[in-house]
Write a protein that binds this DNA or RNA. Structure first.
Lengths: 286, 286
DNA sequence: GCAAGTTAATAACTATTAGTTATTAACTTA
DNA sequence: TAAGTTAATAACTAATAGTTATTAACTTGC
């Protein structure tokens, strides 16, 4: 029996305790208090939902909600269950991101984890049993190759490097930043958060993914501010309005009265002239 | 102890034999005999490398080369090893595609499989031990929502449905076509092949992925024919040449003399003005 | 009531890109 | 040397994206 035959018949689980886990990067948009009280502008912020670990390893660290794949459960079912159990949330948009399987990524045993991205049109969490553990929305700020995850107090900032690693053509290179700096998040969840932010950022302008982050009715300014929050850059209103034309329709209502001219309320209408620009699974164009 | 706590501490592998596998959709381009002997034009074809299963289940069926994740091995290392063992190929471009984990996808036991796409700049397989099993390049033909995998003789065609499943916004729906028709490929490998073809097709025009399928030196006509083979549609030469300008440079040599005007040879030069259009891992724009 | 200030929405314009048609060049064969 | 075919480029057209300018709507302070 040569090496090839040996490996052919080999079953990892016969020799090594191996588990499959799922982890979810759940995004939402929260309209925070206006920065400038005079102008009273809405400042929607992209938020990522993290939970605090109550058990070792990484006890006390923040992590993406996750858990092990159950018997007879599909990956999607597992991630839905985990999200419901850890956050109380249900009925969110789910999309598989990437599977992380480096040996040693979990100090307990070999765990291959399938990371998902979830998008939510609301941020208030359902009332939960306090024993279910701490969960909190972190603000996601993007500037020059870094993603800064911020809880209410700056003391709990999580600085997640968001450098697009350049790689020699044709090879996959994954930089493990745990070598350079201590992990600000449990396991390799900073890599997962990074992958999720990158995916959301890139899909935002060739899909209609942004609308899964919006309430049913919204103003165009609000929608644009959400795009700006995700992209981390300012947009020009006329170009943005033209881009959204055909994807949204006015409801006839006006926004809640604030200062100055009130805005029209719109809703998403899925009537796409180009079906290739509609929502797509598996995270790639098709 | 409630349900949540139970599932928290639960390890799938304690109760169920669970394995992680990797499978690879390996693409190459083969220059086939000219269709028209008078014109003597090259007709490069997109090829997918399949292996024939020698053991049950699906004994005798064609499948993507794959195998189980070994201890201490990363997913990338596992897929590289499996490809080397089953095909003799090394040093190919690798990109994670999607992870398939539906229960019942493997009749033996629970297997979660991480599918990879691999691209190769050559099709001749290295000399191998005949006991290593049968491996063959299947032509990939695309027309109207179907992918037809064809071996030399039409008797062994594998007709893989390539319908972009439309889904209700915000939900992931995976159609399991094994319910409707008997599987033309082992396991859910037709789904994997489908995902790979879709990914390649979509990434071909916003990345430089095509060059990993090309030899070092090539003519522009040949490159265009490869694009046409992957996209399944005809392109216009002037537009294509403009698109490639900046990505390729002439070597100074002329192509092997055939009939009529000989073409210039070019090589890929990675000097991109827009780094966002360069190769990217994880299968999404960033 | 009216000017000032600010946001919402649209119109008009500019620049860039992508796609098409037409033309020229190079080479082989009869 | 003419005919045939592919290679390469030039010139033109259409579509798109981005920018500037303008108008509309509303509140507040004088």
């Amino acid at each position: 029996m040569d090496d090839r035959e040996f490996l052919e018949g080999y079953r990892a689980s016969d020799f090594e305790l191996l588990s499959v886990a799922v982890d979810a990067a759940i995004f939402g948009v929260e309209v925070e208090a206006p920065e400038d009280p005079v102008r009273r502008l809405d400042t929607p912020r992209l938020k990522l939902l993290l939970v605090r670990r109550t058990e070792p390893p990484f006890k006390g660290s923040w992590s993406l909600p996750g858990g092990f794949l159950g018997p007879g459960e599909s990956l999607e079912e597992a991630v839905s269950r985990v999200i419901l159990n850890k956050t109380g949330l249900a009925d969110l948009y789910l999309e598989q991101l990437y599977t992380f399987g480096d040996p040693g990524r979990d100090p307990r045993c070999r765990v291959v984890s399938c990371a998902y991205m979830a998008l939510l049109d609301r941020t208030p969490l359902p009332p939960r049993d306090p024993s279910a553990g701490e969960a909190a929305w972190f603000s996601v700020a993007l500037d020059e190759g870094r993603a800064l995850l911020t809880l209410g107090s700056p003391a709990e900032d999580l600085d997640v490097p968001l450098a697009a690693e350049t790689m020699p053509a044709g090879r996959i290179v994954r930089r493990s930043w745990s070598a350079s700096a201590p992990s600000p998040m449990a396991f390799d969840h900073a890599d997962m958060a990074l992958a999720a932010v990158s995916r959301l950022r890139s899909k935002i302008d060739w899909t209609d993914l942004a609308f899964t982050l919006m309430p049913e009715k919204f103003t165009l300014s609000h929608l644009m501010a959400v795009y700006e929050a995700i992209l981390g850059s300012k947009l020009l209103a006329p170009a943005f309005r033209k881009k959204m034309a055909g994807k949204i329709e006015p409801t006839g209502e006006l926004a809640a009265p604030r200062k100055f001219r009130p805005a029209m309320m719109y809703r998403y209408c899925g009537s796409h002239t180009d079906p290739r620009k509609s929502l797509s699974h598996k995270g790639f164009r098709d």
